[in-house]
Design a binder for these strands. Structure first.
Length: 469
RNA sequence: GCCAAGAUGGCGGAGCGGCUACGCAAUCGCCUGCAGAGCGAUUUCAUUCCGGUUCGAAUCCGGAUCUUGGCUCCA
């Protein structure tokens, strides 16, 4: 039984999908106007973790994540770059996918784009106008929050008390009430000149940000979906508005479980370009590797702020390496493991189901990855201890299977190691011969050569273990 | 102003009512031609402050102090 924290109730709830055959998840995806930063990816990671956990627990999952490829920022920055909106957003969509791969984030079933869903948005707007929940003004369509009594139920904000921002939008668009939000925005003359518009009953328009998500989510799953994910900052107004639009139109509950991921901050401060503490994913991956970044995410619960600091990153790197070391050792030793030479260690074998149970319990408790990692470490230690005294094939096999099972749920150790070059293998072989003949100087110089090629050799009882540095 | 979240050892950072976090650092041992790396074990050391609940609290409940975040584009 999976328990998740539902923002709607502010409580942990037992998760029961409406359709036992398939869990429906909609995740807010990126706005493709620049390289996503590491905090963005923490949220995408969180959704990936959720999917993997559900699959581990035996569910079939369908995940849909949108790509916002038209909004104020994409229009503005594509203009600055003197590119068409399409070319510009395609470039950053590709970057986004590259980032997912770096973090072993599994692809969603679909990535619908805002620009491809205008028909649905226009239809939704029409329906809301018919119901008296929206109105047209100067070519834009706005949602009238005063007509929707449930407004504020997710964010727990009183719609009358929401502070009106000093945003330019307030005067830029003629709304009845400054708190009303746009479903469709009238395209500006400049936008029309660039071809950024769609024909609608109210003239040439482009989508409002909130509209696309409601439309694409319902397009994929119908009026009610199981889970909707996103970052905490989307609770208000984005998700609040999604609820208003969807429930206003259908009269049915839109989302059964809202799951929000906390932010990543840097040295105790919010990431921002002006503070100079803004990190894109490639920058950090460059230094630590994608799996270590993933490990960082895993080591802090998704509803807790992750304070990214140098010390924290180093810590994660060490912890990660220790786990990986054991994994590699198991893989390395297994082929040469003797069937009967060593006795099967009962204690080790019997501990495996216990670890498995503990691991599962941890994830079921609102995706408690820090605890799951703790169990993983226990397994690692247990494996290490066993390897010191015995190498029975059966035990090694079972340890490795267990190891891989944990790793798969957490999304670790998936990077396929590039094949070791023949050159390196030959050098190592020569070195072994030299060692057998006790030609230590020769052996050492060969080791140095191997190192130059970017590999290290460790002498073990089972022979030399080669690793990429 | 209105909502939230958090304060743990030399450092970083888990823990969510009783039981080992873990990593770094230190010590010992194993392994080794050497080296590195690895592995195991060990010591010292903490729970922001003040109350309360409890047989028992880092953990639950008040209060204080400090820090951070949201209320506006935002993962």
């Amino acid at each position: 039984m999976l328990e998740v924290y539902n923002t709607l109730s502010r409580k942990k709830e037992i998760f029961i999908p409406q359709d036992p055959a398939q869990v429906s998840i909609y995740a807010c995806g990126p706005t493709v106007y620049n390289l996503p930063h590491i905090g963005n990816y923490r949220t995408f990671f969180m959704t990936d973790l959720l999917v993997r956990t559900l699959e581990y627990l035996g569910y079939e999952v369908k995940l849909v994540m949108n790509i916002t490829d038209i909004d104020d920022k994409t229009i503005r920055d594509s203009g600055k770059a003197e590119m068409t909106l399409k070319t510009f957003t395609e470039k950053y969509t590709e970057e986004f996918f590259k980032g997912l791969d770096l973090l072993n984030i599994k692809r969603a079933s679909e990535y619908p784009k805002a620009t491809e869903n205008l028909a649905g948005m226009i239809k939704l707007s029409q329906k809301l106008i018919e119901k008296g929940l929206a109105y047209e003004k100067e070519g834009s369509v706005y949602f009238k929050i005063s007509s929707f009594p449930n407004y504020g139920k997710l964010s727990k904000l009183d719609s009358k008390k929401i502070k009106i921002g000093a945003s330019v939008d307030v005067d830029e668009y003629a709304k009845d009430n400054p708190r009303d939000f746009a479903l469709l925005k009238a395209s500006s003359p400049k936008e029309i000149m660039r071809g950024i518009y769609y024909e609608s009953p109210w003239g040439k328009v482009r989508p409002g940000w909130h509209t696309e998500c409601s439309v694409m989510a319902m397009e994929a799953f119908g009026p009610t979906l199981d889970i909707h994910t996103g970052g905490v900052d989307l609770i208000f107004p984005h998700h609040e508005n999604e609820i208003a639009q969807a429930e206003g139109a259908t009269g049915k509950p839109f989302v059964r479980y809202w799951i929000h991921g906390e932010h990543l901050i840097v040295n105790g401060e919010k990431m921002s370009k002006s503070k100079g503490n803004f990190f894109t994913l490639p920058e950090i991956v460059e230094e630590y590797g994608g799996e270590v970044v993933r490990f960082m995410f895993l080591s802090v619960h998704y509803r807790k702020k992750l304070d990214y600091t140098k010390a924290f990153a180093e810590n994660a790197k060490n912890n990660y390496s220790r786990l990986r070391e054991t994994f590699e050792k198991l893989e390395f030793l297994l082929p040469s493991a003797n069937l009967s030479h060593y006795p099967a260690d009962r204690k080790t074998l019997e501990s495996l189901p216990l670890f498995e149970a503990e691991f599962k319990t941890a994830l079921e408790a609102d995706l408690d990855t820090p605890k799951a990692l703790k169990v993983f470490r226990k397994l690692s230690r247990s494996a290490n201890t066993y390897l010191e005294k015995g190498k029975n094939r059966e035990v090694l096999e079972k340890l490795l299977i267990q190891y891989k099972s944990f790793a798969a749920v957490l999304g670790l150790f998936e990077k396929k190691d590039k094949k070791i070059p023949i050159e390196v293998l030959k050098l190592v072989e020569k070195r072994e011969t030299a060692r057998e003949n006790k030609q230590w100087e020769k052996a050492d110089s060969l080791r140095a050569k191997v190192k130059e090629l970017g590999y290290s050799v460790q002498d073990t009882k089972a022979g030399p273990q080669i690793k990429k540095i």
